[in-house]
Design a protein around this nucleic acid. Structure first.
Lengths: 156, 156
DNA sequence: GGTTGAGCTAAAGTTAACTTGAGGAAATAG
DNA sequence: CTATTTCCTCAAGTTAACTTTAGCTCAACC
């Protein structure tokens, strides 16, 4: 009887993923903790990633760079199929979601930019009470911690 | 000899400023600590603000909402004249500064949005190494702590 | 087959922009 | 004149998104 070949999970190590994505190893582990990736484990507990996780993490990086929070991104990623590797179409649908949110944010930013001058020139001292600067321009005001640019979480 | 009239610094209390701007009292104190406002003090140590500080703080609120950091805003405000109340023109110059930075950020955001689809459709798994997604699109990557949307500090 | 590099976990630290709380003084209202 | 309300300072807490450190196991190379 042959010694059974240990079928150890194949795939990329966390270091290899780090190299491919440019992310720090600690960041990748953090993303797992936050439910953004779900690597396999070897019998000794090491993480093994699928090649498609590179795309997944790249997507996280880009959307994050666009100003979306991890919670936003996690919600979006949860729309990907769980039982198969996402197809190109899956990814396209997902990115369309972000695209429209981003469009909205850009529009809002343009409006804000255009009103700044108007309000500065206005006679009332309080820009935030200025007729020109109304509540619709208010961007985000709840919770403590750092304020992020524009918009609440997308209503995905 | 008459009891000398105590010449107490006139002006608005911190509570009045809070009401006028919508800011929390604690935030206003914090902004002072950060060098964004410089109220007078009464002989008993209470803060007294000029009416023009309402505009100053409103400006802080708006530019912050645009995604600029306190350091950015402090740098910009330092361009205002120190020895007189800023005129409408002073404020207009300042807001022009932010306007152009904001324009640049909007443009960058649009580019990023347009490229997301392209990269998602591309054959290479790593979006961040993708030919379509080059270094110019990279937004900000230094320091720890929360990542903000778009751009380093303006080169004011 | 030992040593060096890569991984692992868990806990604590970091930054930004504030808020909250403790403990006390002063201003205002009745 | 007493009771609130407002203000003050200083220290510590909060959130997001990570990084750093400590202490240990495992894998890979010569």
């Amino acid at each position: 009887m042959k010694k059974p070949l240990r079928l150890r999970p194949t795939g990329l190590t966390i270091g290899q993923i780090a190299d491919r994505t440019g992310l720090a190893v600690s960041a990748i582990r953090y993303y797992e903790e936050q439910g953004l990736v779900f690597p396999d484990r070897t019998d000794t507990g090491q993480r093994r990633y699928a090649r498609s996780d590179i795309r997944r993490l790249s997507f996280v990086m880009i959307t994050q760079g666009m100003g979306f929070s991890i919670a936003d991104i996690r919600a979006a990623l949860s729309r990907l199929p769980e039982n198969r590797t996402p197809t190109k179409t899956d990814w396209e649908n997902l990115s369309a979601l972000f695209r429209s949110e981003l469009d909205a944010r850009i529009t809002q930013m343009q409006a804000l930019r255009d009103k700044l001058d108007g309000c500065i020139g206005c006679g009332c001292l309080s820009l935030t009470n200025c007729a020109l600067y109304n509540k619709d321009d208010r961007i985000r005001n709840r919770g403590q911690g750092p304020r992020f640019l524009l918009g609440d979480t997308p209503d995905t």
